[in-house]
Design a protein around this nucleic acid. Structure first.
Length: 574
DNA sequence: GCCGTTTTCGGCCCGACTGTTTTCAGTCG
């Protein structure tokens, strides 16, 4: 699967082409192609082989040729030629806030500025202020921009860090200020695995009171801006939070606008134009007489465009708009559809709580069952259990099941996929388990073919049902190990295996793109497990469901939406 | 360079903000 790689090339092509002064619409076409390829669930090399590249929306004859050329030779002639005219360093100059392609080009042509160092020197020597279109303030801003670029942490924030902060701010506002409606928008509402900043929208009859309160809440580290309708702060954690107060009549249009994604919104506005309408953050307007026809409710905004309302998690312009147009959107899984948690650890291995505490927590979450899945013996660092120890755990589970009836605890295990593709126990010993998970915890630096073969080997073990955290990524920490995920999925379908969406917010593995591929391209089923090591982290289920919703998964695609009775039937088939 | 339930040619999202300007270009989200 080389989609990501090809997409990167076209992002680069777009950047370089823009700096070279190519037709802006051509640049837009490259960007659009890159984005579509990135979100494709089918390997692009397969499409190339079958000569179906120009069937991709946004890919025409010319871009199809470039894709083919890249796949065959590793190069795009057009890109190589442009690079001869555009120095490498110009790309980083665009990252300075306030500088876009146009200004970078002027700086290069008039002052010969080729990189950050040149830029800083020129600004300090006051050479920039005399250029046409530039001035003293711009020069100052450029220096500030260079500084913040160098200071800036490049990581985005994990959703599991950002969402609780956003929620506590909303709570404080609700309690202490006269706000009426409120909504956390942006990538948080879309449940992206990482977020850049927090967007909160509220309505209020007394905006200035709300703003005065907002900029002085305890965890504010810095106030970036304070106005009547918009204020921005930086929290102690370093996350930027924007609070906007909007009119009640525009609330629906505003949350639509600020939820994004950008690409989704651009498409909506294009659709509006074709219907002789205009869409902005204030509402949907008729172009003829500027009359407002929607704005209070978000559903009305979509309806005004003849679209079904689209769940925020799906708003990435990867086909959801077309389906909404035809009224064929899938009914995606709901947060309350989850009936059990399939992956957790207790004090028996490296968890912080007892089985009983985990069970009580599960009951408080409204679950009908849990599967307790300690590490198996090969994972020494995590107190992996022997078969004898699992037998003991089983006795305690039996006792607790009598106590908590009809709620049920199952005995599972998280097996290790060892470096030769074997697992911790003999297959005959696995019969004591209700459910066997298996995952890679060691030997992640092996080659793609080695890791792929390891997993394929484990797929053949009848008793192993679920592959957990299948790509091994830790967000902002460790990238995926190299594995041919298409080959794994194809093989898994033969044996009816299931893949986990690990709901721990550092992992979220499978990712949205991979989960969608597993279900929609390979017809596989998904399990969502929190991998909780404490009662507290069982709350992370919502992040896993968020990924499932971003992957367009339906209730029936996810096995832990089954009722206890259905789940027991499922286990008997295992 | 792509695309077509008005189009195979002539379009290609919207508004706010900033700084440089006397009416607007560039940038951002």
């Amino acid at each position: 699967m080389r989609n990501k790689e090809v997409a990167e090339k076209f992002y680069e092509l777009a950047e370089v082409a823009e700096l070279a002064g190519e037709n802006p619409f051509k640049v837009k076409a490259y960007l659009e192609a890159a984005r579509v390829i990135e979100n494709l669930t089918i390997p692009i090399e397969d499409l190339a082989k079958e000569d179906k590249l120009d069937g991709i929306k946004g890919v025409g004859k010319s871009i199809a040729e470039k894709i083919k050329e890249y796949l065959e030779t590793g190069k795009i002639t057009k890109l190589e030629e442009l690079k001869k005219v555009v120095p490498e360093g110009l790309l980083e100059l665009e990252k300075v806030k306030g500088l876009g392609a146009k200004r970078v080009k002027i700086l290069y042509e008039k002052l010969g500025i080729k990189n950050l160092e040149d830029l800083e020197k020129a600004a300090k020597e006051h050479k920039i202020r005399d250029l046409e279109g530039f001035g003293e303030k711009t020069e100052q801003k450029i220096l500030e921009g260079i500084k913040s670029l160098r200071d800036k942490r490049t990581d985005r924030f994990l959703i599991g860090i950002a969402l609780p902060i956003a929620e506590s701010i909303v709570n404080l506002l609700s309690k202490n200020t006269p706000i009426e409606k409120h909504m956390i928008c942006g990538s948080l509402r879309r449940m992206k695995d990482t977020i850049g900043d927090i967007d909160i929208l509220v309505t209020s009859k007394n905006p200035s009171f709300v703003m005065d309160y907002f900029v002085q809440i305890p965890f504010v580290k810095e106030v970036l801006a304070k106005g009547d309708t918009k204020s921005s702060i930086i929290t102690q954690e370093g996350i930027q939070v924007d609070l906007r107060v909007v009119e009640n009549d525009s609330f629906g249009a505003a949350i639509q606008y600020f939820t994004g994604s950008k690409n989704h919104n651009v498409r909506l506005r294009e659709i509006a134009i074709k219907k002789n309408l205009k869409l902005n953050e204030y509402g949907v307007f008729r172009l003829d007489d500027n009359a407002i026809i929607a704005g209070v409710k978000e559903t009305d905004v979509y309806e005004a465009l003849d679209l079904d309302w689209i769940p925020p998690e799906m708003r990435e312009d990867t086909g959801e708009i077309e389906l909404a147009m035809q009224h064929k959107l899938p009914t995606i899984v709901d947060y309350k559809d989850i009936k059990g948690d399939l992956h957790m650890h207790t004090k028996y291995s490296d968890g912080a709580n007892t089985i009983e505490e985990m069970a009580r927590k599960a009951i408080s979450l409204g679950y009908e069952y849990i599967v307790v899945t300690e590490h198996a013996k090969a994972l020494g660092v995590a107190h992996g259990l022997s078969i004898e120890e699992f037998k003991k755990e089983k006795e305690e589970i039996n006792r607790l099941n009598r106590k908590f009836y009809p709620f049920k605890i199952f005995l599972g295990v998280e097996l290790n996929i060892l470096s030769d593709g074997s697992i911790d126990f003999d297959e005959k010993d696995l019969d004591i388990f209700d459910l066997c998970l298996a995952g890679i915890h060691t030997g992640m630096n092996q080659s793609e073919s080695a890791i792929t073969e390891r997993i394929k080997k484990v797929l053949q073990i009848p008793k192993v049902k679920i592959i957990v955290h299948p790509t091994g990524r830790i967000i902002n920490g460790r990238s995926e190990y190299s594995v041919n995920i298409d080959e794994i999925f194809r093989e898994a379908k033969k044996y009816n295996k299931i893949f986990e969406i690990n709901a721990s917010f550092e992992r979220l593995d499978l990712s949205d793109v991979n989960a969608r591929k597993a279900v929609y391209e390979y017809g596989l089923k998904i399990a969502i497990g929190t991998d909780a090591h404490s009662t507290e982290s069982m709350n992370n289920m919502r992040f896993g469901v968020g990924v499932a919703r971003r992957a367009w998964l339906r209730k029936e695609d996810i096995i832990n939406t089954k009722s206890l009775k259905e789940f027991e039937e499922f286990l008997r088939e295992v």
